[in-house]
Write a protein that binds this DNA or RNA. Sequence first.
DNA 1: GATGAATGAGTATTCATTCAT
DNA 2: GATGAATGAATACTCATTCAT
Lengths: 221, 221, 221, 221
Amino acid sequence: MSIDLTLPKEKRILLAAEEIFSKYGYEKATLDEIISLADVGKGTVYKYYGNKEQLFYKLIQEKNEQYIIALQNAVSSQETLQGKIYAYLVEMITFYKKYANLWQTIYFEMLGGHHGAMVCIENGMPVVKSTYAMEVSEELKERMLRYHTILDDAFVIMRKLLADATDAGKLKISDDVIRTNYFLCGIAMVIFHDRDKIAKSSVEEIAAICADRFLHGEKIH
Amino acid sequence: MSIDLTLPKEKRILLAAEEIFSKYGYEKATLDEIISLADVGKGTVYKYYGNKEQLFYKLIQEKNEQYIIALQNAVSSQETLQGKIYAYLVEMITFYKKYANLWQTIYFEMLGGHHGAMVCIENGMPVVKSTYAMEVSEELKERMLRYHTILDDAFVIMRKLLADATDAGKLKISDDVIRTNYFLCGIAMVIFHDRDKIAKSSVEEIAAICADRFLHGEKIH
Amino acid sequence: MSIDLTLPKEKRILLAAEEIFSKYGYEKATLDEIISLADVGKGTVYKYYGNKEQLFYKLIQEKNEQYIIALQNAVSSQETLQGKIYAYLVEMITFYKKYANLWQTIYFEMLGGHHGAMVCIENGMPVVKSTYAMEVSEELKERMLRYHTILDDAFVIMRKLLADATDAGKLKISDDVIRTNYFLCGIAMVIFHDRDKIAKSSVEEIAAICADRFLHGEKIH
Amino acid sequence: MSIDLTLPKEKRILLAAEEIFSKYGYEKATLDEIISLADVGKGTVYKYYGNKEQLFYKLIQEKNEQYIIALQNAVSSQETLQGKIYAYLVEMITFYKKYANLWQTIYFEMLGGHHGAMVCIENGMPVVKSTYAMEVSEELKERMLRYHTILDDAFVIMRKLLADATDAGKLKISDDVIRTNYFLCGIAMVIFHDRDKIAKSSVEEIAAICADRFLHGEKIH
DNA sequence: GATGAATGAGTATTCATTCAT
DNA sequence: GATGAATGAATACTCATTCAT
């Protein structure tokens, strides 16, 4: 609720931004509230971060970098497919629980939020398309692509895992993008939506159930 | 693109609202554009619908009612668990493809992360809790609960299905809320996010794969 | 200093805009001051005029239209070259005295004002060029071209007059654009700069001297 | 584009200021860009020049001093009126072509219309009067007077020339201030406005035409 | 019943100037 | 002498809502 004033202003701004963006989402968050919480002048934010969007992006990029490394380590520390999936999920759930509000905002923005545009994959490359016949500014396109990339950096690790396993004949043949998105977005949504319930269970327990259900389904054989 | 002017104004507003809210999402949609499309005065919207939020709610409520009936019919038309799940998914995917923009908006309104509040289930009843130490207005509480209910009306049908099957020993034991949310939200997100890919496949094909994976998992045995 | 509140708001805004733009020039003028003088809400200005630039443009365009008609009438009411020039100048000086501050602003904006861009004539067509190696936004280009056109509408009448007289062998051969600009801009600058001196002389007297000097020079033969 | 770093900082600032003020005009130029080009700290500018306006003034004052000397030499190097006028114009056009952006800025600062004030000549002395019923700050008054003097230093040389010639019966009787301003401001405006056309002609050619037209007019006798 | 003119609170961004080091 | 981090006042523009007609 309040920020350590002995920290350098650049850091204070980032902490305040995390709080306010988490609380209100990107659009509804105001710079005024961020500077008030960080106890800095308005110009200081612009000096360090350029503008609102850059501030948000810097914030999530920093978190994401560490997250990606954690995911890579987790996956490579395991030998079996099931082990890798489980290790991935432990990291993912830990991270999403911690940054639920922030990451929920990214999902929203990436889906096109309030903008009438969406990211599509064409020939393996993400492109931004208007959901209707209207122009989408280059600025918005870049922004949505950036958010897409943030999420996809993590998704691609799982996608590769599943694609390799499919090639090795271990998994059913499916569209890898769809399968991965279904798997991970489903988990994300549950963490966002049933946050209090998730809070009561251990990360390991949830990860184990998710991995089991993904591989073997809900049916009792 | 244009609306039948012989229809009563109340209906014209709803049709225009569907078009504009779908196009821009809730926040970015403007009443000005809606009244221009509906060819009514601004006061008329306020007369019939009270305010922007009410208009949006009435719109999705109307769609949802029909959707719920379709789901109930689909499920009761089938005998087996797999058949019921498949029939549910066919309806769901058909509906979500049609109203992707509209329903995407509801998901994020319901998640409520942008307002500093969230819906939790306590003793089986949904209640709104602040995600931060701040008061949540009664107005916002009601609104979030309404959106929660909209989605939950559909989810509860699947939940019941799965709970009964679990009781009958057909499915693994899980938290029914989590399991259902994971299943359905995952599908929803894929439809929102990979809209163009989904557009290329038939609804039946997607439903069949989803049902199979849910019940039997991705693994080849 | 204050505006008749019985006038319609659209008109009041225009009157207030004339006062404030004249006083401060385009850039320094603020909408806040205009609405305060017009005693209307901020939205009202945007309803009627779209934005600050449109408001300014509408304002000067309206004045210019009447001015152009007056110039055309003046010129065609005379038979001789000297008569036509004199009649033109009478109208011009009358107009420039009345709208000195406003028109001074247009000169400034057309010359590129604070923007690092200028209007050049290429193949008889005005184009906007950067004064340095920097991009000029399409918006600014259009704007400068509009201001150029405003002034040129009046200049072209004199240019035609002088070109015809040159063809008829009555005037020395010169670049028509340069000659006209020199003639008229010189007069404009004197009106702007020596406003109080000009105020003491009659329009007819000034016009007569200008016409004489332009045609016969300062030298006594 | 870049500045010799072996020069003293005070000089580097002036060189950078010339570049940036010429490029963007006074208002749009930023100190940030100037210090970046000069490679000095922001405080250094304030140490040496006090503020932005002082920096601009020092810059043009320095240029003007050299210009005035050049004009005086040019005029005194000639014997005849026509020769003196021609020599003056050669210097003037050379100078204005070189510093078009910078001097254009001074013209509009001096006109002062953007500040609600103007310079008038009372009893041969320039005084600042408000164009509206409002107080003009002493600071603004001084500033406008300074800019007036900058331009007038050059104008007075021509004015003297013409006044003497008038007294000697060589020129028609006119208000000397008006006549000079009309003559020189007209030329200035053409250089500012038709910069690219002027660039294609030689200075001598333009000067010759201007002198001829000023003395003998446009009419063929 | 229906209208639409009018409103004004709310927000991202810029940049000259200051002053502690 | 020199710096540059920090400031905050100032400003164009949006849009849900109201209410007199």
